[in-house]
Design a binder for these strands. Structure first.
Lengths: 209, 209
DNA sequence: CGGAATCCTCTTCGATACTG
DNA sequence: CAGTATCGAAGAGGATTCCG
């Protein structure tokens, strides 16, 4: 059974033949946070049948976008090239994030993508350092180096500042509904390390541009 | 009948809820060339059922990404914001464009996207002018202004150079299988206007980067 | 001509149950 | 835990017909 194809000699169509099916780009998003197991993936892809997840993983391993080592899945360098597309699509969708409905899932790891579309290079010219977000049980890092950004969904670098909050607090801060100063005074936000880098981060990451 | 949704509070998921279904991004690609009628769209979306095309158009009009004036469909400014994502996805797919199989469709208008992912801003610092590609019956324009690129799938600006070729010739040139000089000597490629801008274009548009 | 609606078949998806 | 198997539901694809 051959995969369904658009049969077009077009770069966009070729990409969509590969990753355009339902769930596939969300699966890539999950792996942009770092290597994951089947079970981990299921959490961020709630509603996706296990058979479908299994099939997709096989297809993407076959296509050379994912590699499997023992029971750990991760993106290959080629697979990681999808990051640019994922971030572009997410940037388009950012204005659509209004209220969060009760039935909607949210995971702190998704900030690995959110940080990237919220990043303003022109405001980060002289920003340097590693910012670590500890939200609920998760850890997301942003590494700033001379106007460029790298992100990770796990503790990969030594942090210069650690920001700790629960998910609800973090979402309110991101939405601009809660003032960082107030949050800290209320004890809902804890800072360890460089306050200067923290203030820089508030300037550098901004959804409204 | 509510639209299917991923039910995730995530910018990527929100975008895919809107344009992640089969054919939708290819439909956007078609409209990136300029306004089109139902019949025109069917040509570039061969294999898509008329009912499906009709449904998708309605959904996208509803979502504010497309507007319909009389019988002409075109992207709204918000819809045009998808260009960045479409180009990023196509850039990813460019290395997958190997041989063109016999059953695969190709349309010269798709170069509106191809020119954008092939564009190297750093090589176009001092490039200025409008390049017009006349391939078979179609017209695609590229407007260079101080390191930036605009494209159109129709005659929108006064061209500084017009390049005329048939589709086969153009594909061979793009693939690097045919030397521009040879093509011209063989009469398969015709140039009218600024030869200097033509040479610039060869440097500025390059798939291998 | 430019679509919209219907009908029928086929594929894919989604949920659950089951197995190594 | 990491999948595989199964089956009903939903969506896609193609032909044809209807309508203004």
């Amino acid at each position: 059974m051959a995969r369904r194809s658009y049969h077009q000699y077009c770069a966009l169509a070729r990409t969509l033949d590969l990753v355009g099916e339902r769930w596939t780009l969300l699966l890539v998003r999950e792996l942009l946070s770092g290597p994951a197991r089947f079970k981990d993936l299921q959490v961020g892809l709630a509603g996706m049948g296990t058979n479908l997840l299994s099939d997709r993983l096989k297809e993407l391993v076959e296509a050379g976008l994912i590699e499997r080592e023992d029971r750990l899945y991760q993106l290959t360098p080629r697979g990681r090239e999808l990051e640019e597309s994922v971030v572009a699509l997410a940037r388009f969708g950012a204005p659509l994030l209004g209220e969060r409905s009760a039935q909607e899932l949210w995971r702190a790891e998704w900030n690995v993508v959110a940080l990237q579309y919220a990043f303003c290079p022109e405001r980060a010219k002289n920003a340097e350092g590693v910012i670590e977000y500890r939200i609920d049980e998760s850890c997301v890092q942003a590494k700033l180096t001379s106007g460029a950004l790298e992100t990770a969904g796990e503790a990969r670098w030594e942090p210069d500042v650690v920001i700790r909050a629960d998910g609800e607090t973090f979402l309110q801060l991101a939405a601009g509904e809660l003032d960082p100063k107030n949050a800290e005074e209320q004890g809902r936000l804890e800072l360890i390390g460089s306050r200067r880098l923290w203030r820089t981060s508030l300037r550098v990451f901004s959804v409204a541009r």
